[in-house]
Design a protein around this nucleic acid. Sequence first.
DNA 1: CACCAGGCAAGTA
DNA 2: TACTTGCATGGT
Length: 218
Amino acid sequence: MRQEQTNPFLRVYYRLVDHYGPQGWWPGESGIEMIVGAVLTQNTNWSNVEKAIQNLKDAGMLSFSSLQDLSVDLLAEYIRPSGYYNIKARRLKNLLQMIDDEYEGEPTFLFEDSLETSRENLLAVKGVGPETADSILLYAAGKPIFVIDTYTHRVFSRHGLVAEESDYHTLQQEFMDSLPEDAPLFNEYHALIVAVAKEFCAKKKARCSECPLQGVEE
DNA sequence: CACCAGGCAAGTA
DNA sequence: TACTTGCATGGT
């Protein structure tokens, strides 16, 4: 069944699962932790994000109300290791403010809202784009929405499985039209794409001959 | 030393 | 509309 899979998106998935196994991404201890992580990881290595989140934890600041009470400048100091700390502090503040305005300051209310409405509200926040919004919806809220990132585009276009010029929305539609609507599957798949991209599909020096996906396009 | 990282918005022509 | 640039720390 796995071998003779005719759907290329599932074929890739099974290859990656067989090669890497479960990734267990973002087992964040709280909703707010994953929301913060989603913003901090914008164009940034996750290890730097972990340092920033640890700073907030150590200071006892990793809760909605504590973060709301912090000044933008002090928040920026805590998250400094994640890079772009001034702009990310502003973006986090914008996001917290939206949750305050629309959901009484309860991230769980955001998660309980409909996918369409919560996504619109997230995208309306300055500093929250499609990947950040969808990461929050998938990883923190457990909603069935596929997260696209630069790795997804790079891996799939290099294998000729999507058009080079596909934008975020087009790519997302192709994945979601080709896969069962299943949040744990979307979660695992996205993490697996990041894993294979990091190891074999780096921007400059790709190691395609060793990639577990070689020949998957046929 | 150069290069990269789980983006996004603003500026330019 | 279609590029380009700023944002910034830390690991390889």
